[in-house]
Amino acid sequence: MRVVAAMSGGVDSAVAAARMLDAGHEVVGVHLALSRSAATLRESARGCCTLEDAGDARRVADRLGIPFYVWDLAARFERDVVEDFVAEYEAGRTPNPCLRCNEKIKFAGLLDKAVALGFDAVATGHYAQVVEGAGGRELHRAVDTAKDQSYVLGVLDADQLARSFFPLGDTTKHRIREEAAARGFAVARKPDSHDICFIPDGDTRGFLARRLGEREGELVDAVSGEVVGTHAGTHGFTVGQRRGLGIDRSRLDGEPRFVVGVDAPRNRVLIGTGDLLGVDVVEGEHLRWCGPAPAGEVRVGAQVRAHGEEVPASAVVRDGRVSVRLDTRVRGVAPGQSVVLYEGTRVVGSATISGTGRAA
């Protein structure tokens, strides 16, 4: 096959490209330029897509003896990922930009362009496995559960999965670094990048404030309706948040308080005790299936955050939406996050959380 290897400049994508070459494929390395103002050097381990990363990717490609190109998708990344991220927070939701990037950039923008240029597939350094099942290719969790990235790949549909390779899914991260060192890759000990790549200093609230400005509003007790403080914008808060609330604690009973709701239209943040955070009903929209859509009520495992635990659940798909009933309550589930459904290790699909609640 003719394969585009997405090369971020990190150790994982380097080994993924090498393994595809070892497997006998015709491989071309592609680095995605996603930042309009890439810094020369990383500001921290959080950043990615810098000039340094592009250079690291090019050196790996040179060592492998494969062609290497930089594709500029910065404008599309800004529109489909960054602007979407800001708009979601402005609306009082908590998005996962990595899922949106996989959906809109790596497995739409990159894959579509690769196919248009005559390539057969795309390979990335994600930790997940593709298994040939009776009904076609299936997406499964990685062997290394600590590094498993199947959650952020839950947005792939069957057609995208048919043209995707994840060569690292059967190996632990420790082994990948050893393999990179044995291959002579200078990136073997390079630190991993972390979410969110376009906020390299990790200050999400500051990033959003610069984009949206300050909009003073009230912090309201979710039970009594009493105003217990003020805030500079609902975009600085997410369900489950405890720190940085700015509460007048002299008016409280000493028990910890959390964000239990964000009412963006009324510019209010609802505050409550931890017992108000637990939910066992999750409603989802923007459904994406990695294979056939479930029919009727099905038993699944549900995961509501990238590094969260899988919870046994029942799911019902109806009228383009999914309702997930969790067997146990989960705390801090916010609209805008994604719920990814599993059958064993297989990814069934995903949905964007539109609402939560408690079963009667």
Results as ranks from 00 to 15, higher is better:
residue 9 G to Q: 05
residue 11 V to W: 01
residue 14 A to F: 04
residue 17 A to V: 01
residue 24 G to I: 14
residue 24 G to W: 11
residue 25 H to V: 15
residue 28 V to S: 14
residue 34 L to N: 05
residue 36 R to N: 15
residue 37 S to D: 15
residue 39 A to W: 04
residue 39 A to N: 11
residue 40 T to S: 14
residue 57 A to N: 01
residue 60 V to Q: 04
residue 61 A to Q: 02
residue 66 I to K: 06
residue 79 R to K: 00
residue 83 E to M: 10
residue 84 D to S: 10
residue 88 E to L: 05
residue 89 Y to W: 06
residue 96 N to D: 13
residue 101 C to Y: 07
residue 105 I to D: 07
residue 107 F to Y: 14
residue 110 L to M: 08
residue 110 L to K: 01
residue 118 G to W: 09
residue 126 H to T: 00
residue 138 E to L: 12
residue 139 L to N: 01
residue 142 A to L: 01
residue 154 G to C: 10
residue 155 V to S: 13
residue 158 A to W: 02
residue 158 A to Y: 02
residue 162 A to G: 13
residue 172 T to H: 10
residue 180 A to V: 05
residue 180 A to W: 06
residue 190 K to S: 03
residue 198 F to T: 09
residue 206 G to Y: 06
residue 216 E to S: 12
residue 220 V to Q: 00
residue 221 D to I: 00
residue 222 A to C: 01
residue 228 V to L: 12
residue 228 V to I: 15
residue 229 G to N: 07
residue 230 T to F: 14
residue 234 T to G: 06
residue 249 R to Y: 14
residue 250 S to W: 13
residue 254 G to N: 11
residue 254 G to F: 02
residue 261 G to V: 12
residue 268 R to G: 02
residue 270 L to F: 07
residue 276 L to K: 05
residue 277 L to A: 06
residue 285 E to W: 05
residue 291 G to Q: 11
residue 294 P to R: 06
residue 297 E to Y: 03
residue 299 R to T: 14
residue 307 H to L: 14
residue 310 E to A: 09
residue 313 A to V: 09
residue 315 A to N: 10
residue 316 V to C: 15
residue 319 D to I: 07
residue 319 D to W: 13
residue 321 R to H: 13
residue 326 L to P: 08
residue 330 V to Y: 05
residue 341 L to C: 12
residue 341 L to V: 11
residue 346 R to D: 05
residue 346 R to S: 04
residue 350 S to E: 02
residue 351 A to I: 01
residue 353 I to W: 03
residue 355 G to S: 12
residue 360 A to I: 01
